[in-house]
Simulated assay, not measured.
Amino acid sequence: MAVDIEDVFRAEYGRAVAVLIRLLGDIDLAEEAVQDAFTTAVRKWPETGVPPSPAGWIITTARNRAVDRLRRESTRDARHAEAAQLYAPDEPTEEGPVRDDRLRLIFTCCHPALATQAQVALTLRLLGGLSTPQIARAFLVPEPTMAQRLVRAKAKIRDARIPYRIPRDADLPDRVKGVLAVVYLVFNEGYGGREDLCAEALRLGRVLAELMPDEPEALGLLALMLLIESRGPARTAPDGDLIVLADQDRSRWDPALIAEGQSLVRRCLRLNRPGPYQIQAAINAVHSDAPSADATDWGQVLQLYDQLMALAPSPVVALNRAVAVAEVEGPEPALALVDTLDLHGYHAFHAVRADLLRRTGRATQAMEAYARAVALSENAAERAYLERRRQALAHTNS
């Protein structure tokens, strides 16, 4: 039963919070009400069974909890009226371009009054139910730092009285950068082991592409996610072991997702307004074109990473570019680039460095780097893969 409730939480938390925020206009109250509803479910469902509509039960219970709290905490007529409105049988339909509660929540959190990182962090919290440690890991910052950002973002919305409403058409372009960042981080978090978040990110990506068909970065993000998702069936062995890109059985890649993603990449090229998501999608399109790892056009991949570094430079992009450099110029130049990066708290940095050290014959240093990568990784399958690489190297050099 606990597993069933956890599945419902993962699938429905974001929608429930989005609905409650729309009804209440108060983020903290909405979050607390939904959390109370899930706590009640943990207590009641083992006895009564899972209801026919678990999501509806959670939303109704959360709404009732919120009504009780509003009535309990205030005697003012306005508060009673506010609580009574929650029972209104017929809500007026809001007009505007965004009619999806969860997407509307993202656009609300991506208000220009909030810093971009705060926009992304808050939406990950509200939409995906991610914990503060999970969000901190996504941003590569300490947990207390992320906790403070979340508190400040909520306070900003409250104190500035930022409304929870559907943005007008004119508001969409100014908010799209934060919205796309949110959707991609939701997808990445899901790709680490939560298929529900991957599915939600893809759903939101499709809605965004329909909402803004002439916004090339929205199309690029959808293409990027589709091309990454296409490799999902080949990413793990039957026993759950991780299989990296170079070792994957490409016959197991999803041809329909590849075709859709590549079609979007070509559409972006015709728009001729390149951006970071489009370039990342193009990189993944190059991989999807290659019938084998050895046939990959690494020269083209490196050129695309050069463009990405020019448009959106970051240490993580530089790390990924170094992987392409290793294939084109060799591991030594790549290792020299990696060693200039300040990513020592990022497991992938140590994993890439370990592989480059292995390829340059520095087995002892490579094993140390693999051990550091294992210690930092939060994903069990990834940790197991890295530990196997470390042990294989130790066996070869014993």
Rank of each mutant, 00 (worst) to 15 (best):
G192E: 15
H350K: 12
F187P: 10
A259Y: 07
G14W: 02
W298M: 10
T360W: 13
P97N: 01
D169Q: 11
L185E: 10
P142I: 00
A310E: 09
E229P: 11
V179C: 12
R270C: 00
R69G: 01
L341D: 07
L271S: 01
L224F: 13
A334V: 09
T145S: 03
L343K: 09
R137P: 06
A62C: 09
L130R: 13
H287G: 00
A326P: 04
R362W: 03
N397V: 14
A334D: 10
L222D: 07
R79V: 11
A234G: 07
L114W: 00
A394Y: 04
E94Q: 06
L70A: 02
G240P: 12
T340D: 13
Q119T: 06
C268G: 09
V265S: 07
N284M: 09
R125K: 13
L208V: 05
A121F: 01
V179E: 14
E32P: 00
G129D: 01
R353F: 08
A88D: 12
V182W: 08
V323L: 11
A88H: 10
E200D: 05
E94I: 00
L219G: 08
M225T: 13
E12M: 01
Q391F: 02
T60V: 13
L386Y: 15
L127Q: 08
A84D: 08
Q85E: 12
A115G: 06
L343D: 08
S230R: 12
Y184Q: 08
E95K: 09
G299L: 11
L122Q: 10
E378G: 14
K44W: 01
L393N: 11
R149A: 02
A78K: 07
R388K: 15
I135C: 05
A30H: 02
R99V: 00
P144N: 01
M367V: 13
Y87M: 03
A336R: 11
Y305L: 07
R383S: 15
V301D: 10
A113T: 11
R168G: 14
Q35Y: 00
N188K: 13
A351K: 11
L23R: 13
D7V: 12
R161C: 04
A30C: 05
P255T: 07
G129P: 02
A237P: 03
V316W: 08
E229H: 15
I27C: 03
L204P: 06
R372D: 14
L122M: 08
E47L: 14
A354Q: 11
S74K: 03
P52T: 09
L224V: 04
C198N: 12
D339P: 06
V17C: 05
V42W: 06
E91K: 06
M212S: 07
G193H: 15
A181W: 08
P274G: 01
V244I: 13
G299A: 14
A199P: 05
R194F: 09
Q119V: 04
G361C: 06
L386C: 11
T61H: 03
E217M: 03
G220A: 10
G240I: 05
V182Y: 11
E31A: 03
S377Y: 14
N379L: 15
A282P: 01
R175N: 10
E94A: 06
I59S: 08
Q280T: 00
G345Y: 05
N320A: 06
Q300K: 15
A66E: 05
I166M: 10
R231Q: 12
I162H: 13
S74R: 13
A234Q: 04
L386M: 15
A160S: 13
D241R: 15
L103F: 01
P276I: 00
L70E: 02
L357S: 10
L202E: 07
V325L: 12
E368C: 08
F139P: 04
